[in-house]
């Protein structure tokens, strides 16, 4: 295992990059996911269909395939991005579908009386969603959203396929350079756990903090 301890800086750098990629993608996926969920419950049918189509198409395609679509297909029709940006786009688009479905389940868990009371005082549909239903929905899905973030931390490893420097690619590189793949990937596994397990604790803490008094 000395390979790992001699190259700690490589792992630390990999963790930093993985965290950067994941946090940025999660923030964007959170925003996009809320939009997806809001459209999904909209009274306007075409908006609901558009949202459902997006979710089903993206969620049901392997992440690696999406990655290659963005890296190879988009540039061929004139869109070019850095590899890092490509990875953010794909991870965001993919994760947003899960955020969207989760937030939608949160919306459905808010009693209909809340939305009715909101409409009864004269709030419009978007206002009642934004001011009354969504804040309660988000509080109930903090746990599942934390799970989605942890999945994203792990999923971000597919960025190795397009040479974005992050934890998995750092381990791959180290394994190739030293011909010691087993310790390199055991090191990577430990480094992922160092990111994911605290994320789980943070989720639990946040969940308790924002819980609605019942």
């Amino acid at each position: 295992m000395s390979v790992v301890f001699d190259n700690l800086d490589i792992f630390l750098e990999g963790m930093r990059r993985t965290l950067e990629l994941s946090v940025l993608s999660f923030i964007l996926a959170f925003i996009l996911g809320i939009v997806v969920a809001a459209l999904r419950v909209s009274p306007v049918p075409p908006l609901r269909w558009a949202s459902a189509t997006y979710v089903e198409m993206v969620r049901n395609t392997p992440l690696l395939v999406l990655m290659f679509v963005v890296v190879f297909a988009f540039p061929s029709i004139g869109f070019t991005y850095s590899y890092f940006a490509s990875a953010v786009i794909v991870l965001t688009a993919y994760t947003a579908t899960f955020v969207g479905e989760t937030v939608r389940s949160g919306i459905n868990a808010v009693s209909t009386g809340q939305a009715e009371a909101a409409r009864a005082i004269g709030l419009t549909f978007p206002q009642s969603l934004r001011l009354v239903v969504m804040p309660q929905a988000l509080r109930t899905v903090v746990g599942p959203l934390g799970g989605i973030f942890i999945a994203l931390l792990k999923n971000s490893g597919v960025a190795v396929a397009i040479n974005v420097p992050e934890l998995t690619s750092a381990a791959t590189q180290l394994g190739t350079d030293t011909a010691q793949f087993i310790p390199a990937f055991l090191g990577a596994a430990a480094a992922y756990l160092l990111l994911t397990i605290p994320s789980g604790f943070a989720t639990n803490w946040l969940e308790r903090r924002v819980a609605i008094k019942r």
Partner: peptide
């Protein structure tokens, strides 16, 4: 019909429900 006009009208009609429906958050 449903929309801004209806929201405006509803603002002029108070409603009290059996189950209170106070905004929980």
């Amino acid at each position: 019909e449903e929309g801004k006009g209806l929201a405006k009208l509803r603002a002029d009609v108070g409603m009290v429900f059996q189950s209170f429906n106070l905004f929980a958050h």
